[in-house]
Simulated assay, not measured.
Amino acid sequence: MIVEVYKRVQGSSGENRLEVIQGDVLKHQLPYFDLCVANTPYQISSPLVFRLLAHRPMFRAAVLMFQREFALRLTAKPGDNLYCRLSVNVQLLARVNHLMKVAKNNFRPPPKVESSVVRIEPRNPPPLINFKEWDGMLRICFQRKNRMLRAIFLQKSVLRMLEEKRKTAHSLGTLGEDGTLTPGLNATTGDSELLMADEGQALSTLFASLGREDGKEDDMQEEDSEKVGDNVQEAMDVDASSGRSKTAKKGINQALRESVDKVLKETDFATVRSKEMSIQDFTTLLRSFHTQGVRFG
């Protein structure tokens, strides 16, 4: 393919301006670029998107072709069936627009799937937010996106995980009104470096991880989500006479449970489903959890 590309520009005005880089786009150090236009291998769609969004300096726009369903997930809005963790993470970092459909008959031989072209424009400057905290919360929210948040967050498994986070986390501070995290009095230098969008390797590594995991979610999607969180009803089973959760009798930190429940009630998200929440809603929720000392990263 590379030989054919060089052959086509040989003797033309663009011959001296063409540079071909051969390698794995997910591993190769990308040069500076302003625009990215690609017919992407569909199996690397998600990690490629996050690889591009982690690239510095930031590019102006990317026009990419994906499998139709993946493209619709990138552009899905709250309430859409395909709205998922991938949708929220990508739209937090970029503006995404669906440009056109590409029928399979446009290819030889025709593939088994339909395609779409999307335009991705990174938000510049990027949002100042702790992405580990952000995505840690989203993982919980989208365990079962059709469930109410209170049913999700009061699972025994979730509460135990949050308790472990609380025990091991340093004092990281609180999330401000503008979405930025302010270091606490006991925050170390290492903690502070995690509080806002890191322009270096740490951010790239995190995004690469998100890309791989979101890709797996895309394959599974919500059909398998009913297998997640078998303890929802147990976490929601409240003794009406005492007003205390039965989970408190089984080693769950009652104070943490009350903090989580307080956040959900005060933000009016207790009976809201993840699939209905906007990015601003998730930002408000994360900020409220931080004010109660609840951590996800």
Rank of each mutant, 00 (worst) to 15 (best):
P127Q: 05
C141H: 03
E121C: 04
D178M: 00
F107H: 02
E121D: 05
C141I: 13
S115C: 01
G136T: 02
V102C: 08
L128E: 12
R119H: 03
N186G: 08
I152F: 13
G176S: 15
T180R: 15
D135W: 05
E133Y: 10
I129Y: 00
A103T: 01
K112A: 11
I120L: 01
F153L: 06
P127K: 08
A169T: 11
G173C: 13
G184N: 09
D135M: 00
P122V: 04
F153T: 08
F142D: 05
E133P: 01
R147D: 14
S116P: 01
I129S: 09
R166N: 12
E163T: 09
G184D: 10
Q143P: 07
E164S: 11
M148P: 08
L162C: 06
T168Y: 00
K165Y: 08
Q143H: 15
E164G: 05
F131W: 14
T182F: 12
R166T: 11
P183Y: 12
N106S: 05
K112L: 00
G184K: 03
Q155K: 06
K112Y: 03
G136S: 01
G179F: 10
D135R: 04
N106R: 03
C141N: 14
R139H: 03
E114S: 07
F107R: 03
K112P: 02
K104V: 03
G136F: 01
C141L: 15
P109N: 15
S157W: 03
T180P: 01
A169H: 12
D135I: 02
V117A: 08
N146F: 11
K132D: 12
R108N: 07
K112R: 11
A187Q: 12
P126N: 00
E114L: 03
A187P: 06
K132E: 14
P122I: 11
R144Q: 13
L172M: 13
A187C: 05
V158R: 05
K145Y: 06
R160E: 00
K104R: 10
N105G: 00
G136H: 06
E114P: 02
T174R: 10
P125K: 09
G179Y: 10
F153C: 09
R139K: 14
R144I: 01
L128P: 09
P110C: 04
V113D: 14
L181W: 12
T168R: 08
M161G: 06
L185W: 07
N105T: 02
D178L: 07
M137F: 14
V113T: 12
G176H: 12
R139T: 07
G184H: 03
A151F: 13
N130H: 12
P183N: 14
F131T: 10
P109G: 08
L149M: 14
N106F: 07
V117H: 11
P111F: 04
E163F: 02
V102T: 09
I140H: 03
R166L: 04
E177N: 09
